[in-house]
């Protein structure tokens, strides 16, 4: 009798178990939200800058003038840049102001019909901080089928100082203003102040080992806590002085950023022997309207070149 009861109870238990087990869900998860206090998980937008790393064409413009700013993407553009380049123990500071006025009615296209730029115009005299800008050719390179085309889109206004051959008495004053003045050949002169950001000074600390694929780069800078900064991660081809800007990383200007490990460790160090980190703190705004509408960039750049 006892055995019968035991078997009965056991049967009920097994039946209940099978019914219950088949009706099970996964326990409800908790959603975690990345907030400002998160330390291990930085908010960052990552974009590939140079898709074709075999082509030296894409290496142009990296070092000083706004890197991937495709100037022709804008109607007319003013770019002011204060640059610091740290390469081993040498530091180079440069200041650059340039203005380009595109004629959107005269696009330049490659053989596939893609717009690679616009011809430019020179509307009159341009002054930065009262210094008359020099007129220089705006050169671009673009791939046209199997060949690389060098062409001049027109002229641009440039004020530059900082290198041996730079004689303009122009200095990019940080956390200040730079005046812009356009005296057109026709019409009334235009002038306004362009604010400059606080100077950015970065620092890169490595740990780990590139061969073990556990290289970790901690980037630190004088954060302001406002807006975002852009960090460009690039590399220099081994034995050549050709640099490729690889990724654009946009993150909070909060003084510290850990480069996602996979970005760093996936770089083929057999091809690249130097890594470049470019810190860019930028102010951008639009000025004017209609055909006189200008896109203005004012940026502090610190580029650090590291032998890896």
């Amino acid at each position: 009798m006892k055995k019968t009861i035991s078997k009965f109870i056991l049967s009920i238990a097994l039946l209940a178990l099978s019914l219950i087990y088949n009706g099970c869900d996964t326990p409800a998860p908790t959603e975690l939200v990345i907030d400002n206090n998160t330390t291990t998980e930085d908010q960052v937008d990552v974009e590939i800058i140079t898709k074709d790393i075999q082509d030296e064409f894409y290496s142009n413009g990296f070092d000083s003038t706004g890197v991937a700013q495709r100037l022709h993407n804008f109607g007319s553009v003013i770019v002011l840049t204060g640059t610091k380049i740290s390469n081993n123990n040498s530091i180079t500071n440069t200041s650059l102001a340039q203005a380009v006025f595109f004629d959107k009615t005269t696009p330049v296209k490659n053989m596939h019909g893609d717009v690679v730029g616009f011809h430019t115009v020179l509307p009159g005299q341009v002054k930065f901080n009262g210094i008359t800008a020099k007129i220089r050719p705006l050169e671009i390179k673009f791939r046209n089928g199997s060949s690389v085309i060098d062409t001049i889109l027109g002229s641009k206004y440039v004020v530059f100082s900082g290198r041996q051959n730079a004689v303009d008495p122009f200095g990019y004053n940080f956390k200040s203003n730079i005046s812009f003045q356009l005296n057109p050949d026709k019409g009334l002169p235009t002038s306004f102040l362009i604010p400059t950001p606080e100077k950015i000074t970065g620092k890169v600390t490595f740990n780990g080992n590139k061969n073990a694929k556990n290289l970790r780069a901690v980037l630190e800078w004088n954060g302001t806590g406002s807006q975002k900064i852009e960090i460009v991660l690039g590399a220099i081809v081994k034995g050549k002085n050709i640099s490729f800007p690889l990724y654009s990383l946009k993150t909070r200007d909060d003084s510290k950023f850990v480069v996602p490990a996979q970005l760093l460790n996936s770089i083929p160090f057999e091809r690249f022997d130097k890594i470049i980190f470019t810190f860019i703190r930028r102010i951008e705004f639009d000025s004017g309207s209609g055909s006189n509408r200008l896109k203005v960039f004012s940026q502090s750049i610190h580029t650090i070149i590291i032998n890896i």
Partner: peptide, 23 residues
């Protein structure tokens, strides 16, 4: 203890622009 489980999920602060320009 199949029900002794706690799951968390979160969306990383990292976003990537892919080849097709999608994020």
């Amino acid at each position: 203890t199949p029900g002794y489980q706690k799951d968390f999920f979160f969306i990383s602060g990292q976003s990537f622009v892919l080849e097709d320009s999608s994020t």
